[in-house]
Simulated assay, not measured.
Amino acid sequence: MVKKLPPLILLGRGTFSLKQFRADCYEAARTLHARVLEVKGSDYHSYSVCNMQLPAYHKCNSINVTILRNGNYPIIGFSSTQEAPFIFLDVPRLQEVFEALGYEVWSKEYLETDPIEEHITDLTPQEIEDYNYWRPNQIGQMVFNFYD
Rank of each mutant, 00 (worst) to 15 (best):
V2R: 03
K3L: 15
K3D: 15
K4G: 03
L5P: 08
L5V: 06
P6V: 03
I9V: 13
L11C: 02
L11R: 06
L11K: 10
R13K: 10
R13W: 03
R13E: 06
G14M: 04
S17E: 12
S17Y: 07
S17K: 11
S17V: 07
L18I: 15
Q20I: 13
Q20Y: 07
F21M: 11
C25Y: 02
Y26E: 15
Y26W: 14
A28T: 08
R30A: 10
R30H: 09
L32V: 04
L32T: 04
H33P: 05
R35H: 11
R35G: 04
L37I: 15
L37D: 13
E38Q: 03
V39T: 15
S42F: 03
H45A: 15
H45I: 11
S46K: 02
Y47E: 05
Y47M: 08
S48W: 13
V49F: 08
C50D: 09
P55G: 11
H58Y: 14
H58W: 14
K59G: 08
C60N: 14
N61A: 15
N61Y: 13
S62Y: 03
I63W: 11
N64R: 10
V65A: 10
V65M: 09
I67C: 04
L68K: 09
R69T: 01
R69Q: 05
N70M: 04
N70I: 04
P74C: 09
P74S: 13
I75K: 08
I76H: 01
I76V: 13
G77E: 02
F78I: 01
F78C: 00
F78H: 01
S79Q: 03
S80T: 12
T81N: 11
E83V: 14
A84N: 07
F86L: 04
F88R: 07
L89N: 12
P92F: 11
P92S: 12
R93I: 13
R93W: 06
L94I: 12
L94D: 11
F98W: 07
E99N: 15
A100C: 13
A100D: 12
G102I: 12
E104Y: 05
E104R: 10
W106D: 01
K108T: 08
K108H: 10
K108S: 12
Y110V: 14
L111Y: 03
L111I: 04
E112M: 13
T113S: 04
P115H: 06
I116C: 00
I120N: 07
D122Q: 04
D122Y: 02
D122V: 00
T124E: 11
T124H: 00
P125H: 00
Q126T: 11
E127H: 05
I128F: 09
E129C: 08
D130S: 14
Y131I: 06
Y133C: 04
Y133R: 09
W134K: 09
N137T: 07
Q138S: 12
I139K: 01
Q141L: 00
V143Q: 10
F144D: 05
N145M: 10
F146E: 12
D148I: 03
